[in-house]
Structure formats: C-alpha cells, structure tokens
C-alpha cells in the first residue's frame, strides 16, 4: 500500500500533464456561441454609403439565410470573399452582409473591387448590431433558418472545405425542413 503511495505524485503529474495538453489544443478565441438556436436579434440597419439595399432582421426571417459580418479593413474577410462569391453564384441562399465599423464609402469601394455577393447589406457603423450577434471579430458568419433562429456560427473565414463539409449540408437540411 505504501509502495503505491510512492507513485501517487507521478500519477498526479501524468494526469495534470494530460489535462494541460488538452488545454493547449483548445483555441481561446473560439468562444462557443450562446446564440445557437436562439432567435435572430431584431435590428434594422441603413444601407452602406454608395448602396441602396439596407438590411433588417425582418428581411432575413422567412427563408434560410446567411449573415456575414465583414469589413474592408479585415484581411481574413478578403481571403473569405472568393468563397462567398462562389456561393452566391452557385447556391440558392439569401446572402446578407453586416458591414462592421466601416468608414463611409470604404465598404462599397471594397465590394466594387472584389465583387459583391450580398443581396442586402446593413451599415453597422457603431458596432451595436455586431454586439447583438455576439461578434468578437470579423469575419463571422451565421446561418439562420426559415423561422429566424440562428443555427450555426462560423468564426473566421469560410473556406471551401468548411463550406462543403459543414455549412452546405446544414443549409440543404434547413431548406428541406422549410420546404424550400
């Protein structure tokens, strides 16, 4: 018995080391969203400077939709952009954008340069709607079902792999549920 006691510190060490090894693999910037399965926050944003297609929560409810938080100052957004263009061209889903903390004109200029995948864009100049969505950085993307509930949150850019493996199947499933 006392022999086993000798190994107790070693056992504790191994357990702690394993615990910390798991902890190291955990990305602290990936905060699980509390908004999953919650209704979309109610908001109404004006159109961005240079556009006339404003975005409100009422526009989104009623179909499966994608809400993408983006900004021209956000480098990963530019990385994500071609994938959104591809989705806009190939898929049947309402793509909306929340232009987060943008200077007037910058958003429209960015879209002129890179292409515009968004059907509707809201100008969130003071960042209030981003806080309503629990956004911690751009880009972030939400998939909203036809009943207006948030069903998925993507932190960081949507890559082709993420779209094909995670988002596309979910969108198709939600569209089937809604009979779209």
């Amino acid at each position: 018995m006392s022999r086993l006691f000798l190994y107790l510190p070693l056992l504790l060490f191994v357990l702690l080391a394993a615990w910390f090894a798991i902890g190291l693999r955990h990305d602290p910037s990936r905060i699980p969203s509390v908004l999953i399965d919650q209704p979309l926050p109610a908001f109404s944003l004006p159109a961005i400077d240079g556009r006339d297609n404003p975005l409100s929560s009422d526009d989104i409810v009623g179909q499966v939709a994608l809400v993408n938080v983006f900004a021209s100052w956000c480098i990963p957004c530019a990385i994500e952009h071609p994938q959104l263009m591809k989705v806009a061209a190939e898929e049947d889903i309402l793509i909306t954008g929340v232009n987060w903390k943008e200077r007037p004109g910058d958003g429209a200029a960015w879209l002129r340069r890179l292409g515009d995948p968004y059907a509707l864009i809201g100008d969130d100049a003071d960042g209030r709607v981003a806080i309503d969505f629990g956004v911690t950085g751009a880009p972030e993307t939400f998939i909203v079902d036809a009943k207006g509930r948030i069903r998925y949150k993507q932190i960081g850019p949507i890559t082709e792999q993420i779209w094909d493996a995670d988002i596309k199947p979910l969108v198709e499933q939600l569209q089937a549920e809604a009979g779209q």
């Binding site: 905060i31 699980p32 969203s33 509390v34 926050p41 806080i131 309503d132 969505f133 911690t136």
Partner: peptide
C-alpha cells in the same frame, strides 16, 4: 451581455 456573449 451574457445573453450575447455567454458567461465568458
């Protein structure tokens, strides 16, 4: 804020 960002 907890409703939007969680207990975090």
């Amino acid at each position: 804020l907890v409703q939007r960002y969680g207990d975090y």
